[in-house]
Design a protein around this nucleic acid. Structure first.
Ligand code: MN
Ligand code: MN
Ligand code: MN
Ligand code: MN
Lengths: 136, 136
DNA sequence: CATCATCCGTAGCCATTGCTACATTTACAT
DNA sequence: ATGTAAATGTAGCAATGGCTACGGATGATG
């Protein structure tokens, strides 16, 4: 019986772990997108993008620099490291698959955009594969 | 162009809002389940269920009491208020639909259990309706 | 090259959710 | 009834991610 409860706790541990990576994933994806669209990515671009204050962005950018995902000098644009770029591509691809999946399932674009932004971080490789298969 | 960025920020705001309700949703669902299975729900049952310390549970239970979702006296079992019970039923139903959906999509039970625990909180009414339709 | 608006960093606050260590209460066994 | 183990509460710490207020840096404009 305790094994049962223990086994049941695994999804929650995994979910907490995924939430811990969520900020990093969203940030590298945003930086990549903003650089593609505007040529550079400033702190204030990210603040508008996520609808948070520039202070929140600034602190998170600093932390992601320590994790070797982003790079920037003070008052300069934010750039992706090689590691950050690689993560961004993976994350964006997964996001696009989740989004396309929801739309093919019959969800309108507005709600597919909203829901996919959260769902993407909880889609493991098996679920992602099942979504890809459904899309074909 | 700024409207475009503003519109893009909506999914992130919504995702943050959903994460803010996530703990309450998981807790009322867990309390309902533990009472059904064991007759009562103790703080330590919840700690094992979520794989966190009893201290974390104790503090969250106190807060959810202030939100009128749970009820308990010190050293006594945790119970659901009417409001908590209503929320638990809604949340559990949604969770079961997401789980069944993933399994029907071809995901194995272990991974469906894991992924649905996070995905459930990001499934809006439109996506939930689309999943229900797919299940029929 | 001086001024000024914009951008960005820093200080410091709050809430949430993890934790360990310790205190207290409860419940059970002798 | 008393003693002990388990359950729960409390104190206090850390990390994360929100915020406002303020000050310094940058760059465009005249
Ligand atoms: Mn996201
Ligand atoms: Mn989530
Ligand atoms: Mn759940
Ligand atoms: Mn959940």
């Amino acid at each position: 019986m305790k094994d049962k409860i223990k086994a049941r706790s695994v999804p929650f541990s995994q979910t907490r772990s995924r939430h811990a990576s969520e900020t990093a994933e969203d940030y590298v994806e945003a930086v990549m997108e903003l650089i593609e669209e505007q040529g550079e990515c400033r702190v204030l671009d990210l603040a508008r993008y996520f609808n948070v204050s520039h202070v929140t962005v600034s602190r998170i950018v600093k932390r992601l620099q320590e994790e070797d995902l982003l790079y920037s000098k003070p008052y300069k644009p934010v750039e992706l490291t090689a590691k950050g770029s690689k993560l961004a591509k993976r994350v964006k691809e997964r996001h696009l698959i989740v989004l396309a999946f929801l739309i093919k399932l019959g969800v309108d674009k507005v709600n597919a955009d909203i829901d996919s932004e959260g769902i993407e971080h909880h889609v493991g490789s098996k679920t992602l594969a099942a979504m890809k298969k459904f899309l074909k």
